[in-house]
Amino acid sequence: MFIRSKFFEDYILNETRATLGRTITETDFVIHAGHTGDFFPHHMDAEWCKTQSFKQRIAHGTLVFSVAIGQTALEINPEAFSKGYDRLRFVKPVHIGDTITTHVTISELADDKKTGFGKVVEHVEVSNQHQQVVLVCDHILLAKRKN
């Protein structure tokens, strides 16, 4: 991880980046359940899941989101900060052994009239090893201007 100043004017519309893959493990399920208190059988009970249409445990949506966004956090930008996430959707289930990759596209650049900062929207798509989209959302950043 390194520090890199990137001002609003440095962002380029439609610029993309992708992360390396990360395989989701049973340990991820257990630790995430412990952190969140979400021990629903969909995530934790392999035998019960065999009786359901999906036949195997499903990763917590918040686990997939956390890992995917963590994959994108490779640098610290002291000139911008996260305002939050919009339109978060869990498109397909993620299972133990699936490998996810996160793709980010700069989808919007605009003025944020309330703050005077520039608004940067990163469209985030997370795919599994079969190139199937499993999660989508928009990450909103506020970035300082050079002037």
Rank of each mutant, 00 (worst) to 15 (best):
T105C: 04
I96K: 09
V133A: 03
E122G: 13
H35K: 00
T102L: 11
F8W: 08
H43E: 10
E108S: 13
G97R: 13
T36Q: 03
Q52C: 15
E122P: 03
P93W: 07
F2S: 14
A80E: 00
E15M: 08
Q132P: 10
T72M: 05
I12C: 07
V124R: 04
T62R: 08
E75A: 03
S127K: 15
G21M: 04
I100G: 02
H35I: 02
N147G: 15
K92P: 02
G61M: 09
T25R: 13
Y85W: 12
E79M: 09
H43K: 01
L63F: 09
E15Y: 04
I140S: 04
R87K: 15
M44T: 10
L13H: 12
A59L: 14
G84R: 00
K6E: 14
V126N: 08
K144C: 09
L63H: 04
G37I: 05
Y85C: 06
T102N: 07
T19G: 05
S5P: 07
N14G: 03
C49A: 12
I31C: 00
F117T: 06
K50E: 14
L135R: 10
I3F: 05
M44S: 06
M44D: 00
S82D: 11
T72S: 02
F65N: 02
S53A: 15
A80K: 04
G34V: 00
D98T: 08
P41S: 15
H60V: 13
G116S: 10
T115M: 13
V134I: 15
I100R: 09
E75P: 02
V134K: 06
E125W: 03
N147M: 15
T102S: 12
T72V: 08
I3W: 05
L20K: 15
V121Q: 06
V120P: 04
Y85A: 01
S66C: 01
F39H: 01
D98H: 08
N14Y: 04
T99P: 07
V126A: 06
T19N: 01
G84Q: 04
D10P: 03
V136Q: 14
